[in-house]
Design a protein around this nucleic acid. Structure first.
Lengths: 234, 234
DNA sequence: AACGAATGGATCATACATTATTTTGTAATT
DNA sequence: AATTACAAAATAATGTATGATCCATTCGTT
């Protein structure tokens, strides 16, 4: 058997009969049920997800366009390696884009917008990280309130794409206590800066927020990797 | 017939028998042979490009991932409108990314790198915009010397994707004399800043370069649109 | 206007053909 | 015996063809 030729680790996110093949494969990549560098054989996937090969082929193309899958001509598809570099790359791009999107929001934010942000933040604080998955959704919604308002749909969609990847990765790891505190603090600080119409401050808070998020994810990935290596005998 | 239901304007970029369906459709979208908002019917495309439907469907998924095509469930694909907003969106993102990539290059550039840049610039000046297409290639190569060195492959690939779109659009329009001068001037200035290890200056030159490029494209698009409207009776 | 049939076309399911890659087996060479 | 070279077989990607099903729009009727 070759290098990382994962032995058909039956994916089985095929619970939701509503989900498309694309969504299921994507979910399985993100949740690491389909491991990094695993070969994605069309026929295997088709049987695993209970469809024909046609939808699988299209799903793989789509996933390639979104960066979840890499393909070589005549050699098929593989799961992209979501490693520290991958996260760092995305975070660096977000550290450029999110502050820019935030600046625009500061210039157009009305009282109702700020009220929405506060309501969203209140939900986050009420949940208090009890459910990682739900926290991820609330946190995403908080930032979405800011970025969805931007006229640059390309940039907003780029954020969304990156966000979904990062959220999915984060879901696999616990959030440290210090990171929890930082998240809440930075959110409050961001709302303050927006209320004060201080674009520079808002932008710098966001940059710090994104960087901290990335740093935390990468640290957690390192922890997981070390643990994984230790128990990889089973 | 519905709104923009382009009447099967036989694409026919099917000259190159080597090119994949994906490449041909992409080329036809970029060169506006497939017009904005045109419906992309799988069966039509298959016959037009001389393939079966399967490769077409896969190509469309890929193009969707790259933003050339928009799809609605059960309603198929359409060519995305490459209008002023589209260009502005991309340019704004590039105005964030390219300066950042450039800063890194300044920190690692060796004498040979600068020599490469100068050689590339010499080629550009020798051609002196005689062939728009070739100029586009040389100009792309010039910037590629800088960006390909970056460790952030995601960012570099994002640049490349955007670059190809912009280059293709530019090819449709002439370059004004003032823009030609600005391009040459800014390239030289960039080389100077890199040689002087002045990251700030290099970054600001690049930002200006990108912005000017976008402004020029958008102006030319406006000219073309007005001309097109006038002769749209034929 | 409301409703149901007819249509066009996307999407999905199969089956098969073709081609490129990888593996495997065998023989020749060192 | 180990290594290299190469042919044959297996594997899997890619392309073709065809029919079924589902969805959205159009059209005719009430």
């Amino acid at each position: 058997m070759s290098e990382t030729d994962v032995p058909v680790a039956l994916p089985e996110s095929a619970n939701d009969p509503q989900a498309s093949v694309y969504e299921m494969i994507r979910e399985d990549i993100i949740s690491a049920r389909l491991q990094p560098n695993a070969r994605l054989k069309v026929a295997d996937l088709a049987t695993a997800y209970g469809t024909s090969t046609n939808p699988v082929r299209e799903a793989l193309q789509q996933l390639r366009g979104e960066g979840f899958v890499v393909m070589e001509p005549n050699r098929g598809a593989r799961v992209v390696a979501i490693d520290e570099d991958f996260v760092r790359d995305i975070i660096e791009i977000e550290m450029l884009i999110e502050p820019a999107l935030t600046r625009w929001f500061v210039t157009i934010a009305a009282d109702t917008d700020i009220a929405d942000l506060e309501a969203s933040q209140a939900e986050i604080e009420a949940l208090n990280f009890a459910d990682p998955r739900q926290h991820g959704e609330l946190d995403t919604r908080f930032h979405q309130l800011i970025y969805d308002r931007h006229y640059n749909r390309h940039a907003a969609e780029l954020w969304w794409k990156h966000r979904e990847i990062l959220r999915a990765i984060s879901r696999r790891f616990p959030t440290s206590l210090s990171r929890r505190q930082a998240v809440l603090r930075e959110h409050r600080e961001l709302i303050e800066a927006i209320r004060a119409q201080d674009a520079d401050r808002a932008a710098s808070v966001v940059a710090r927020h994104v960087e901290g998020s990335g740093r935390h994810i990468i640290e957690q990935m390192g922890v997981a990797k070390r643990n994984g290596a230790r128990r990889s005998g089973g």
